[in-house]
């Protein structure tokens, strides 16, 4: 390791000051190398690639300006994917945030077995997306699915969750929320734990109602954490891939072909690499925009 350079030489020598000065750079060099070499490279080359035509039916790699973008935004499959993604993200964020808040408040409130529940709540975070998909597919299948068996026991009509476009979207939202809520809970919990109790004292003395306490005091106070939770929920949902591909494969009828799945299909089953990169740029654009908006809202609320 290059860090163990000599530093024992006399403090006045030029080379030793140079060595001393180089210590922090040497320390962070491997990290920068990996992160810039892989992540920054990917982003930059993806953006560049989106201006070229790179696919199986083209010889070479001609520069095509904005042709890929124009193609995407006039292509019904992409626009469908974009719409579906937005619905999927909105539903996931709303359900995820409500569940996360309810769980976080009650976890905070509980004294008995608090650690037990806290530990329990994080378990889905450890389960891989593929495993989540298999379990949810099993629960929502028509023949072996527990949900349909329960409906059947109550004499209700069977629902073909995975064969119906809207139900399939709903199942993907549930599976996605199952996987991303645990982290949300912990983010919000850490926010609530940091609140100064004096504020509550004062409000209770003033006779504030419980709803008032929740909406006027608790929520505003944890708004920075809400911002982080929202960013986490929407990022995780916008880029959800691991759960969707094994759960529905993007079907039925492209109903769950969200942007990441669409990108994968375009690049790896249709071999249109530059078009895939263009979708990546769109995904990144949404991520950056969303986080800027959230941070603005919750900074000002604070």
């Amino acid at each position: 390791m290059s860090v163990n350079q000599q530093v024992t030489a006399g403090p006045s020598t030029k080379s030793s000051t140079f060595r001393k000065k180089s210590v922090p750079y040497l320390l962070i060099f491997p990290a920068v190398l990996f992160v810039a070499g892989v992540l920054a490279y990917a982003v930059i080359s993806g953006i560049l690639l989106s201006f070229f035509q790179y696919d199986l039916n083209t010889i070479g790699r001609p520069f095509v300006w904005f042709q890929n973008y124009i193609y995407l935004f006039t292509n019904s499959a992409f626009l469908n994917s974009l719409m579906r993604s937005i619905i999927f993200v909105a539903l996931s964020v709303i359900i995820g945030l409500i569940l996360g808040l309810a769980f976080a408040i009650s976890l905070y409130r509980t004294t008995k077995y608090g650690d037990f529940f806290k530990g329990l709540s994080l378990i889905p975070y450890l389960v891989s997306g593929v495993a989540t998909a298999v379990m949810f597919r099993f629960m929502f299948a028509s023949d072996v699915g527990l949900i349909n068996m329960i409906l059947d026991t109550f004499g209700l009509e069977q629902v073909l969750f995975l064969a119906d476009p809207n139900w399939a979207l709903f199942v993907t939202v549930l599976a996605n929320v199952w996987g991303i809520v645990p982290f949300t809970v912990l983010i919000l919990l850490s926010g609530i734990q940091a609140i100064d109790s004096e504020l509550f004292e004062a409000a209770i003395v003033d006779g504030a109602s419980k709803l008032n306490l929740l909406f006027k005091i608790l929520l505003p106070l944890i708004s920075p954490m809400m911002g982080i939770a929202l960013i986490w929920l929407s990022f995780a949902s916008f880029n959800m891939f691991d759960v969707i591909l094994p759960l529905t494969g993007g079907g039925p009828l492209r109903a769950t072909e969200y942007l990441a799945v669409y990108m994968y299909n375009v690049a790896f089953t249709e071999f249109q690499y530059s078009l895939g990169s263009t979708v990546m740029v769109v995904i990144l654009f949404f991520n950056v925009t969303l986080s800027v908006i959230y941070l603005k809202i919750f900074k000002s609320a604070e």
Partner: peptide, 9 residues
């Protein structure tokens, strides 16, 4: 056909 054929591999 099975009602879920649309999701069949």
């Amino acid at each position: 056909i099975h009602p879920e054929s649309i999701s069949w591999t």
